[in-house]
Simulated assay, not measured.
Amino acid sequence: MAICHAGAELPGIAVFARAPLAGTAKTRLIPALGAAAAARLQRRLTLQALAVARRAALGRVTLWGAPDDQQRFFRAVQRACGVDLRSQSGPDLGTRMAAAFAAQAGPLLLIGSDCPALQPAHLVAAAQILLDEPPQDAVFIPAEDGGYVLVGLRCPQPQLFEAIEWGSERVMAQTRHRLSGLGLSWAELPWLWDIDRPADLLRLATLEGFVEWNR
């Protein structure tokens, strides 16, 4: 188990996002939306996640792009928003997340772009858990589907992301087991839902800013 002393350093925020390319973005929504509209939704969700991260007014915001940071959309966002831009790297999600935490070294909150219900207040609450005395080693916002929409760590813990069934409903349960095995302390905020399947689109339409996202 890694030991670190975060002190009062505000956590940075890493936003993981896939490039909004038709046919490769939000593929499970393509049967309901079509490839072009699914890509437009990915673009809107990514911009929303970045706006939320910036409004939280914590540490540095970094956009981690997939398949790499050379995509035109990511470059345009970097110019417009001034966020740092990095490429996701690694054979699976766990490896890619571990790399993001290793690059930060200090406290970091990591979110995806699939949770439009996430608000700046959620990020601030998660950051406070890492900074309070006694601080927790980790903080999570579980997802309704069994995963999680936010993970925060005081310092890198690469073993936390090993041998997890990413994309399954067992992600959060397996992560809790791993946390216990590593002797890490953690806290969980109330769960949120993310956009993953066609049924989720009905809830998306109820959120401010997303009613007319496809126009």
Rank of each mutant, 00 (worst) to 15 (best):
D69Y: 02
P198M: 07
H5F: 13
W193H: 14
A56W: 00
A38Y: 03
L50E: 07
R203Y: 11
R79L: 10
A17H: 05
A125S: 15
D92P: 10
E162Y: 06
P190F: 03
V139S: 01
A102R: 14
R28A: 15
S113Y: 03
G112M: 01
W64P: 00
R215S: 12
E165T: 10
M97E: 03
T62I: 10
R96Y: 05
G152M: 02
G82V: 07
G167T: 07
V124T: 13
M1W: 10
H5I: 11
E208V: 12
C4V: 10
A205C: 07
H122C: 03
W213C: 06
R170E: 12
H122F: 06
A163W: 02
S168R: 03
Q157Y: 08
V77A: 04
D69P: 04
L29R: 08
Q174C: 10
L150E: 00
S180A: 12
E188P: 06
E208R: 14
A205S: 15
D132L: 11
A117I: 01
A38L: 12
A14L: 00
T46L: 02
L29G: 07
A199Q: 15
N214C: 12
L10N: 11
A173F: 03
L58W: 00
N214P: 03
A49S: 15
S113W: 02
L201P: 11
Q70D: 14
A102M: 11
A127V: 11
L179K: 03
A99E: 02
P190Q: 08
C4T: 13
S113T: 15
L93P: 00
A39H: 06
A51D: 13
A38P: 14
V171M: 02
A199L: 15
D194G: 15
Q157E: 06
G94N: 02
L192P: 08
A19H: 15
R203G: 14
A117Y: 08
Q157H: 14
F73S: 09
A187K: 08
L63R: 01
